[in-house]
Design a protein around this nucleic acid. Structure first.
Lengths: 160, 160
DNA sequence: CCAGAAATGTTATATTATAACATTATAGTA
DNA sequence: TACTATAATGTTATAATATAACATTTCTGG
């Protein structure tokens, strides 16, 4: 999960711009604004929530349609992830540090939508992939979304 | 994934009724119709698609609102699963056979929505649970939804 | 500067889901 | 049997998420 100071944001956005250029695309003003929204949100947010964050916290005027388009762009450029489990979006954690990561597994709090990216040991993921192939399927993505409750949010009674 | 003959359907529905009674609830006519719809769909379907299946293939007249309510009931009675990944629903595979299963892991084809329930070996799932606890989270569910492409559906070019 | 491509704006609408309240059916009990 | 409480279903409205289609603006290479 990303939680980032204001001065670091600027650096991260500049780095993201470099990353886009390397992929042959451009981090335009609007795209940068949406990414900044994800960074300040510091949790998984829906496209419409992100529109609100950009307007209320950053003063950026974006329409939901644009936000959806830009989120798609950010995904394609490894700057954001869509969490299918909750229909929400987060900034990729790797953009706030310099080293390479394993494909992340996402722990998603069902209550507060906090997201932690953990690295499940490679052999474990290999086993999952193997069971998948054995059943005649191919993994669509190297990341799993794992629905959890974080320690700040007690699981609902029914789940205990 | 459930694919089931007409004569078997009747037996499964009767069995489901017993299972409900054991849990202190009732498989009413409408609920049975929705479950039958899931059985004949034989893949993951949305609530609205299920409404169509029930009407077009079975002649049952159900409103989407009722279908949502009934799907919730079926989930609570271990007769159906909601796939958060795709906002679709399936019948629990266990209701078509008599033995106990491990908590299932779902392989979901992103293209055709076919679902296979596989049993990932317990030690593997233990490792995942352990990594989760270490990160300060508690698993919300003992099943994982794993997005895949089945062998009948080629992965889209971008995913290769 | 011009033409084509890329990005964004705009409007409309599809899809998934829930809220709120009315009506009907069922089960337990006097 | 009739009464009552609860469960189930019906009905209407609307929220939340997402995409389609086409117009306009901006950028880029020649």
């Amino acid at each position: 999960m990303i939680a980032i100071s204001q001065q670091a944001t600027k650096r991260v956005l500049a780095q993201a711009q470099q990353q886009c250029l390397a992929l042959g695309s451009k981090l335009t003003t609007k795209r940068s604004q949406v990414l900044e929204g994800l960074l300040v949100a510091a949790k998984a947010v829906s496209a419409y929530e992100l529109t609100d964050v950009c307007r209320d916290k950053l003063g950026y005027d974006l329409l939901p349609m644009s936000v959806y388009r830009i989120l798609e762009f950010l995904e394609n450029n490894q700057l954001a992830h869509r969490l299918n489990t909750s229909n929400k979006y987060i900034a990729c954690s790797h953009i706030t540090c310099d080293h390479q990561h394993q494909p992340p597994q996402f722990l998603i709090c069902k209550t507060c939508h906090k997201v932690e990216e953990v690295e499940v040991p490679t052999p474990i993921m290999e086993s999952v992939a193997k069971a998948t192939r054995k059943a005649g399927f191919t993994l669509a993505s190297s990341h799993l979304e794992i629905e959890c409750y974080c320690n700040d949010c007690d699981p609902p009674e029914a789940a205990i």
